[in-house]
């Protein structure tokens, strides 16, 4: 049960809007970090990767701010019903986004290491496409949040499957490279961790979509979202 009416205490509305604006800002920073770090990877842009690394502290700071503000709201306003769920979901989303920031930062760190190694086929391009898909998923999850749009959140949840598929395809690609050219193993390991980082961001986007459903309906989505089989090894198949 959501409620779009204004509170009698208008300061309460302002506080709730402010804390939601903070997670939107966090979301924007995380999306940027993801796009920029994957661009740095493909374009082998060390400077850009460094910038993404140092930008992560702004995301961490925002998470702290969200938590402080949420604690203040709970203490002062004693929120109930949809107000309570707003405060709870804001905290969960902020912590998810903070983790996403860490994953992007990791991507940037490995980009720095990879810049000294030979490129592995077209895999940097594939990773960038994965990052783009995940960024869109995150953006839609956050849009669904701000619009209280359950249908959109459900749709985002379903997309996690595509991300898993892309990740699995990348994994096979890396395995093939490693088997064909053992000198690429080190680079492929880094690339694989990067792909895993991005796939984890997709999981967090799914988590945000689930928070939207909880926020609006008061219920946590029950039916487990379809998860693809864990990666099976070529050769171990069939």
């Amino acid at each position: 049960m959501m409620n779009n009416e204004k509170h009698i205490a208008s300061a309460f509305d302002r506080d709730l809007e402010a804390v939601q604006a903070m997670i939107m800002k966090m979301g924007g920073l995380v999306e940027d970090a993801l796009l920029e770090s994957s661009r740095a990877l493909e374009e082998r842009d060390v400077e850009l990767a460094q910038r993404v690394r140092s930008a992560d502290s702004a995301i961490d700071a925002l998470e702290m701010q969200v938590n402080t503000e949420a604690a203040r709201l709970i203490a002062i306003r004693a929120p109930t019903a949809s107000d309570l769920r707003t405060v709870l979901t804001v905290m969960k989303i902020a912590s998810g986004l903070e983790r996403c920031g860490d994953h992007a930062k990791n991507l940037a760190k490995r980009t720095l290491v990879l810049s000294d190694m030979a490129p592995v086929g077209a895999s940097a391009g594939s990773i960038r496409r994965l990052a783009k898909s995940v960024q869109l998923m995150l953006k839609d999850a956050l849009d669904a949040y701000i619009r209280r749009d359950v249908a959109m959140a459900q749709e985002v949840r379903q997309r996690d499957q595509e991300i898993d598929q892309m990740y699995n395809a990348l994994f096979r690609e890396f395995l093939t490279h490693m088997m064909e050219d053992p000198r690429s193993i080190s680079a492929c390991m880094h690339l694989h961790f990067i792909a895993k980082n991005i796939e984890r961001v997709g999981d967090h986007a799914t988590g945000i979509a689930e928070q939207v459903i909880y926020l609006v309906t008061g219920d946590v989505p029950d039916e487990a979202r379809p998860k693809l089989d864990t990666v099976s090894l070529p050769g171990a198949e069939g």
Binding site: N3, P79, D219
Partner: peptide, 19 residues
């Protein structure tokens, strides 16, 4: 009632909205 009321009037009242 305080986390997930079913009626919009209850929600408005307990969350301090003009209902």
């Amino acid at each position: 009632i305080f986390t997930n009321p079913k009626d919009p009037r209850t929600e408005s009242y307990i969350t301090g909205r003009i209902g």
